[in-house]
Computed example of a mutant assay.
Amino acid sequence: MVDKLSQLGLAGAASDRPDKINKKVKTREAEAKASIKETDKMAAGKTSGAQVKISDSARELMKLRAEAERYLKMVEEKETLSAEELEEIQARLQSNHYLREEVIDKIIDKLLDLPGFKNL
């Protein structure tokens, strides 16, 4: 054992100075812990200031997606037409009902009453 200690430069220390060996080991352990803490602090500092840049095309895609989701929600909330109602509309189209002057006037009035229509 003395040979191994002498190779490490601690010959005679095992019997003569066990307190000094323990102190050196504890000092090295403390330095290692301090080094780890410092590394963690540096890493935390680098990530806390991280920034993400979004390209213009990605921004446009995000806007389009939000708009599509808004329209999808509107469609989901709308009432659905029954088969009878659809047949009635088709019959009106075939008979040119919607081309009559009084019907066109009603449609225009309804469009003008829609919120935000006049701003378009």
Rank of each mutant, 00 (worst) to 15 (best):
K24M: 12
D56T: 08
S48M: 12
K33P: 02
E76W: 07
E67C: 01
V2W: 09
K4C: 09
K110A: 13
K46E: 07
A32E: 11
I36L: 14
L64Q: 13
A91Q: 14
L72K: 08
L64I: 07
P115M: 05
A30Q: 09
V25K: 03
G12K: 01
L93P: 00
P115L: 10
M42Q: 15
A66C: 02
T27F: 07
T80N: 12
D105N: 12
A58N: 09
L8S: 04
L8G: 03
L8I: 03
P18Y: 01
K73T: 13
E79R: 13
K106G: 03
K41C: 02
S6K: 15
L114S: 06
V2L: 13
K110H: 02
E29I: 11
L120M: 10
R70M: 08
G9F: 01
A50N: 06
L10W: 11
L99E: 15
E87Y: 04
S95L: 12
R28K: 07
I104D: 06
Q94Y: 08
V75L: 06
R65Y: 03
K73Y: 02
Q90C: 12
D40I: 15
I108A: 08
A50K: 14
S82G: 05
A13M: 07
D19Q: 02
E67S: 03
Y71I: 10
K63C: 00
S6R: 15
S6E: 14
A11Y: 02
G12N: 03
V25A: 04
K20W: 13
E67I: 05
E84D: 11
Y98Q: 08
S15P: 00
A68S: 06
L61W: 04
S6G: 10
K33Y: 09
D109G: 02
R28A: 12
Q7K: 13
G9Q: 00
A68N: 11
L61S: 07
K24L: 15
A30P: 00
K73P: 01
V75T: 08
Q90Y: 10
A83E: 14
L99I: 05
Q51W: 02
S95D: 15
I107W: 00
K33H: 04
Q90W: 05
E77M: 11
E31D: 01
A66Q: 06
A50D: 09
D40A: 13
R92D: 15
A83F: 11
L8Q: 06
L99Q: 14
A91I: 03
E38S: 10
E88H: 11
R17Q: 01
A32M: 11
K23T: 10
I104V: 15
D16S: 06
I107L: 03
K33E: 12
L114K: 11
T80L: 11
K33V: 04
A14K: 04
K20E: 12
E84A: 15
N22M: 10
E69S: 05
G45H: 02
A32W: 07
L61K: 12
L72T: 09
S95F: 04
K24F: 04
A32N: 02
